[in-house]
Amino acid sequence: MSSELYSAIEYLSEEKGIDREILLEALDAALVSAYKKNFNSKTNVRVELNENDGMKVFARLEVVDEVTDDQTEIALDEAKEMDPSYEVGDVVEHEVTPRDFGRIAAQAAKQVVTQRVREAERGVIYNDFMDRVDDIMTGKVQRKDNRFLYIHLGKIEGKLPLNEIMPNESYDIHDRIKVYVTRVENSGKGPQVFVSRTHPGLLKRLFEMEVPEIYEGIVELRSVAREAGDRSKISVYAENPEIDPVGACVGQRGQRVQTIVDELRGEKIDIVHWSEDPVVYISNALSPSQVIDVLVDEEDQATTVIVPDHQLSLAIGKKGQNARLAAKLTGWKIDIKSESEAREEGLLDEDPDTFDLE
Rank of each mutant, 00 (worst) to 15 (best):
P288N: 13
P288T: 13
S289L: 05
S289I: 00
S289D: 04
S289Y: 00
Q290S: 12
Q290H: 10
Q290I: 11
V291A: 06
V291D: 00
I292P: 07
I292D: 12
I292K: 07
I292G: 04
D293H: 14
V294G: 05
L295V: 12
V296M: 04
V296K: 02
D297L: 08
D297A: 05
D297C: 09
E298C: 03
E299W: 06
E299K: 10
Q301A: 11
A302I: 11
A302C: 02
T303H: 00
T304F: 01
T304K: 01
V305N: 03
V305Y: 02
V305F: 07
I306E: 06
I306R: 02
I306N: 00
I306Q: 01
V307A: 07
V307W: 11
V307R: 03
D309T: 13
D309L: 10
H310S: 03
H310I: 12
H310N: 15
Q311L: 06
L312Y: 08
L312D: 04
L312T: 04
S313L: 03
S313Y: 08
L314K: 03
A315T: 05
A315S: 13
A315Q: 04
A315K: 00
A315C: 04
G317Y: 14
K319Q: 15
K319G: 06
K319A: 15
G320I: 11
